[in-house]
Amino acid sequence: MLPGGGGEDGKRRDRGASAAYDKDADATTSASAASLNDLCATATGAGTAGAPQPFPRAAAWGVAALLAVGLGVGALVLAAVHSAALLVVAVLLSAAVAAFLLWNAGAAASGRALRRFVDGLPASSLRVAADGQLVKITGFVSCGDISLISSYEKVENCVYTSTLLRKCARWGSMVLNPWNRQSKWKLTHAERFAADFYITDAKSGKRALVKAGHHSKVVPLIDENLLVTTSRDTELSSTLKYWLEERNISSEEAQLIRLEEGYIREGMQLSVIGMLSKKNGDAMILPPPEPLLSGCVLLSCLLPMYFDGIVLRLVDRSYFVPNSGVS
């Protein structure tokens, strides 16, 4: 009870103060919710699904048609003059082009092409970079007005969290062995969130606000740890059961699952690519106004690809434990 009142007047004042407190709490909760950036749509890839592809589909079909014509002509020459040279050349060329396109399609879908581009890009300095320039800033992360807590491990003071739930399936049907290499882990539930945070430039020592919250476009290149892998003989832990119940997922549906989680915690080292804004002496890194094209990675035979938003590339991988999560 608040001081300064008794009887009915005091009770009315208490009720009024409680109502005001509830309104303030609701406003604070709404502000915090508005500060979060729901990135669940980027869970299936590198977050560039809406960007145009570097190799247009019409051009791919055109190349396929030309290769088909070459194979047909080679087959005719083989039948007419019994010389397989042209057919062999056409087959080898078709195989090389198909392998090149498949390699680039896989690299774009997995984010490998963008990772190679980001890793090869030289770091910028907040001291010399100009307003409106596309920059890559590498440094240590600190939380902004709000911080996040990871969904499963409950890691605090995060600026980005990612929790993915996958089910084991093969051609749409459940399989008995989750360790079978032919089994496919299908994403069935995703939780990805980001918030505004600060990054301290390792080159200049200056600090910039990264606008990753408030519905900004963000491309997270963050690896998730494998926390849990279950089989039909696995007894689910109480923590996992509670996590599933909170999301209305039946424990019976969780007999063949993988749970993965990643995060960016305060104090980690991160590379950020975005548009630099300098106003009133304050530096901010904003999403680019339109999708941008990365450069070619010739040594890896990778075509340029588009990225749309602030790119987050984790440099500090001390939390990442590969091949973990056997439960």
Rank of each mutant, 00 (worst) to 15 (best):
G45M: 06
G45R: 13
A46S: 15
A46H: 07
G47Q: 11
A49K: 11
A49T: 14
Q53K: 12
Q53P: 01
P54H: 04
R57G: 00
A58R: 13
A59G: 04
A60C: 08
W61L: 14
W61A: 10
G62A: 14
G62Y: 02
V63Q: 09
L67F: 00
A68T: 14
A68M: 13
V69K: 09
G70I: 00
G70D: 04
V73D: 04
V73F: 15
V73P: 00
G74P: 02
V77N: 07
L78W: 12
A80Y: 09
H82A: 14
H82F: 10
S83Y: 04
S83V: 09
A84H: 09
L86S: 14
V88Q: 10
V88F: 06
V89A: 13
A90C: 06
A90Y: 01
V91G: 12
L93A: 14
S94Q: 05
V97N: 04
V97Y: 05
A99P: 03
F100Q: 10
L102Q: 09
W103R: 12
W103I: 07
A107M: 03
A107D: 01
A108C: 08
A108L: 12
A108S: 11
A109D: 01
G111I: 15
R115Y: 09
R115M: 13
R115W: 07
F117D: 15
V118G: 01
L121P: 01
L121T: 15
S125K: 10
R127F: 13
R127P: 01
R127I: 02
A129W: 01
A130H: 09
A130G: 07
A130N: 10
A130Y: 05
D131S: 09
D131W: 02
G132I: 00
G132V: 06
G132P: 08
Q133H: 04
L134P: 00
V135G: 01
K136I: 00
T138E: 06
F140Y: 10
V141A: 07
S142F: 06
C143A: 15
G144Q: 05
